[in-house]
Amino acid sequence: MKTIALYDGTCSLCKETKRILKKLDWLNKVEWISLQEYEKEPGSISFSRHDLRRELHIITPSGSVKKGYYAVRRLLFLFPASFFISILLYVPFTSILGDPIYKWIAKNRHKFLKKKCDDGSCSL
């Protein structure tokens, strides 16, 4: 079973993140599903619509859910090209900085993508 990554299919930053991470997934370990499609699936794990749009969610093969910084860290761990970088993200206390930085970028993505977010999908 693959890790499932739920991303906002209307968000330019999310789509770009998916594009970059797919290039690193040489072993095809991750299945990318837009949260818009995921929400239509019967019996899917229910998440708050707001939470899904606020940060990346992954569902591991064991069924655990990781969000935001922890999801990105886990994805980087799965890919051979980023494995060693991900090890640094598992050093104790790195999440003290990593998680707030991830949340700040996600919250302010509309500022970074002014030209690509004309439909308002990046503003939460």
Rank of each mutant, 00 (worst) to 15 (best):
I4M: 13
A5N: 10
A5G: 12
D8P: 13
D8V: 05
D8L: 07
T10W: 15
K15H: 08
E16C: 08
K22Y: 01
K22H: 07
K23Q: 13
D25E: 03
V30T: 08
V30M: 05
I33G: 06
S34C: 03
L35N: 10
Q36M: 06
E37W: 04
K40C: 02
K40M: 09
G43N: 10
G43L: 05
I45F: 11
S46V: 12
R49L: 13
H50W: 12
H50E: 15
D51P: 07
D51S: 15
R53S: 14
R53Y: 13
H57Q: 12
I59S: 01
P61R: 03
K66D: 10
K67Y: 02
Y69H: 14
Y69A: 13
Y70T: 05
Y70P: 05
A71Y: 04
F77M: 13
F79G: 03
F79Q: 01
F83Q: 06
F84N: 09
S86K: 04
S86F: 06
S86R: 04
I87E: 09
L88K: 00
Y90C: 03
P92S: 00
P92D: 00
F93G: 02
I96H: 05
I96K: 11
I96F: 12
G98A: 00
D99T: 09
Y102T: 03
Y102V: 04
W104E: 00
I105E: 01
A106F: 02
R109C: 02
K114W: 01
K115G: 12
K115V: 08
C117I: 02
S121I: 06
